[in-house]
Design a binder for these strands. Structure first.
Length: 215
DNA sequence: GACCAGGCACATC
DNA sequence: GATGTGCATGGT
């Protein structure tokens, strides 16, 4: 029985060989990544893209401009991303935090330590662990591993964790067994989403998946 | 029409 | 502390 470390290396190798580099996050600027991270909560990326292009077309994809928008207008723009009422609130909560604590400056945010930033992000209503970690890794290049529903399926289906594993446990499995490397964390998570979208369905589970390690 | 998608907060027990 | 539920659009 290979060690967890060995399994994680095999999985990464297979994913990279099959799919190559993913060039994540699919956003042009760190701020766009932050907005996308909130909009993609439990939502397919295609719908998020529609919402983001609405914001771009209206030329409001900047923290100050988004905050100035009337709530109804903002909701209208992000409507395609689903849950638009609650996401309007969440986005505004984040924007307020971003403006009040960091003047809307990515540079100022980057200067703060990972643990302090993570705590601050998690204190924003509407920003949970996955969203916070996505912002930290993909917008701010901080070394933290992002987990999600695909991560969960891949780990459980390869017997790397139990069905009851929560987010922190999934994250520890990666962070305790991989070198602390922003580039690796970035690519690994992106590759899991890539294979996940295609093959890690609830059912039929794993059909045709190139990751045929244990199942 | 059913099922799914890169979660999260909140109510209730 | 655990378990259940609301939130909503768009693609397959």
């Amino acid at each position: 029985m290979p060690s967890t470390k060995e399994m994680l290396n095999r999985i990464y190798g297979l994913l990279y060989k099959n799919f190559g580099p993913q060039h994540w996050w699919p956003g042009e600027t760190p701020f766009e990544v932050m907005v996308g991270a909130i909009l993609t909560q439990n939502t397919s990326w295609g719908n998020v893209e529609k919402a983001i292009s609405n914001l771009k077309r209206a030329e409001v994809l900047e923290p100050q401009k988004l905050l100035k928008l009337p709530t109804t207008k903002l909701a209208e723009f992000i409507r395609p991303a689903g849950y638009f009422n609650i996401k309007t609130k969440r986005l505004r909560n984040f924007l307020k935090f971003f403006m009040e604590s960091y003047d809307g400056s990515v540079k100022k945010m980057e200067a703060v330590s990972l643990s302090k930033l993570r705590e601050e992000l998690l204190s924003v209503n509407g920003v949970g662990r996955e969203t916070a970690d996505s912002i930290l890794l993909y917008a701010l290049d901080k070394p933290i591993f992002v987990c999600d529903t695909y991560t969960y399926r891949i780990l459980t289906r390869h017997n790397l964790c139990g069905e009851e594993a929560d987010y922190d446990e999934l994250q520890s499995i990666f962070m305790d067994n991989l070198p602390e490397d922003v580039k690796l964390f970035n690519e690994y998570h992106a590759l899991m989403v890539r294979v996940g979208k295609e093959f890690c369905k609830p059912k039929p589970a794993c059909e045709g998946c190139p990751l045929k390690i244990l199942f």
